[in-house]
Amino acid sequence: MARLLQAFDLTVLVSDPYATKADAEDLGTTPVPLPDLLRRSDIVTLHAPSLPGTRGLLDADRLALLPDHATVINTAGGSLIDTDALTAECVSGRLSAILDVTDPEPLPIGSPLFGLPNVQLTPHIPARVSP
């Protein structure tokens, strides 16, 4: 993702507990702690694996750090975001979301996320790697 964004005039921040500062800089990104990234970002895109340690990575407290009108993009794993907290932020209009994955997946039929103008839901189609 970082390489794709190099074509644009953007500051790309990254928060990755496993990447070194040199790794981040080689990609043209700036490594920062997650709370700083959230406070400074208009768009946050998740690329972490869905593991017990990443469950609820963006919970209510962390979502509250995002500036008004920020957009959250999740193509990684539905469990990385507290769905109830994100729903509340999107219903209020404070945040927007683009979600390829959700928790639960699929969302319940009555989920408010379906009818919000600031939320885009896409059908999750995992990539397949040919041998």
Rank of each mutant, 00 (worst) to 15 (best):
H69M: 04
F114R: 15
S96G: 15
P104E: 01
N74S: 10
A97V: 03
G77A: 13
S111V: 11
A88H: 07
G78F: 06
A97N: 05
A88K: 13
S92G: 14
P106L: 08
V91R: 14
T87R: 05
L95F: 06
T102H: 04
A88E: 12
L80N: 03
E105S: 03
L113N: 12
V101G: 04
A76C: 11
D68V: 13
T83M: 04
P106Q: 03
E105Q: 12
T71P: 03
P106A: 12
E89C: 12
C90T: 11
D68M: 07
D68S: 15
T83D: 00
A70N: 05
G93L: 13
I98F: 07
L95I: 05
D100N: 10
P67H: 10
E89M: 13
T75Y: 10
S79M: 10
T102R: 08
A76R: 10
F114P: 02
N74F: 10
L66R: 02
A85I: 05
I109V: 15
D82A: 00
D100V: 00
E89F: 08
E89I: 02
A97F: 05
D100W: 08
L65C: 09
V101T: 07
C90P: 12
G110C: 11
V72Y: 13
P108Q: 09
L86G: 03
I109D: 15
G110A: 14
D84M: 03
G93P: 10
P112M: 14
I81R: 01
A70L: 13
D68G: 13
P108M: 10
A70H: 14
E105F: 01
T102F: 08
I109G: 09
F114I: 08
V72E: 06
T75P: 14
G77W: 00
D82P: 00
R94H: 09
S79I: 02
S96I: 06
P104H: 08
G110P: 07
A88G: 09
D100R: 08
D82T: 01
E89W: 10
S79D: 10
L99T: 02
P112H: 14
I109N: 11
I81W: 00
V72A: 09
D68F: 03
G93Y: 13
E105V: 01
L95M: 00
I109S: 15
T83Y: 00
L95Q: 08
S96P: 05
V91I: 04
P112R: 15
H69N: 11
A88W: 12
P112E: 14
D84T: 12
L95A: 02
L107P: 06
D84W: 03
L86V: 00
P112D: 14
V72M: 09
I73Y: 04
D68W: 11
S79G: 08
L107H: 11
D82W: 05
L107V: 08
A70M: 13
G77P: 09
G110R: 09
I81A: 00
R94L: 06
V101W: 02
L107A: 07
L80Q: 01
L86I: 06
G110E: 15
A88V: 02
I81F: 01
G110L: 14
H69C: 06
D103P: 07
L99W: 01
S92V: 05
A97Y: 07
P106D: 01
T87Q: 04
L65G: 11
C90H: 07
L99D: 01
T87Y: 13
L113H: 14
T83K: 01
A97E: 08
S96V: 06
S111E: 13
G78P: 03
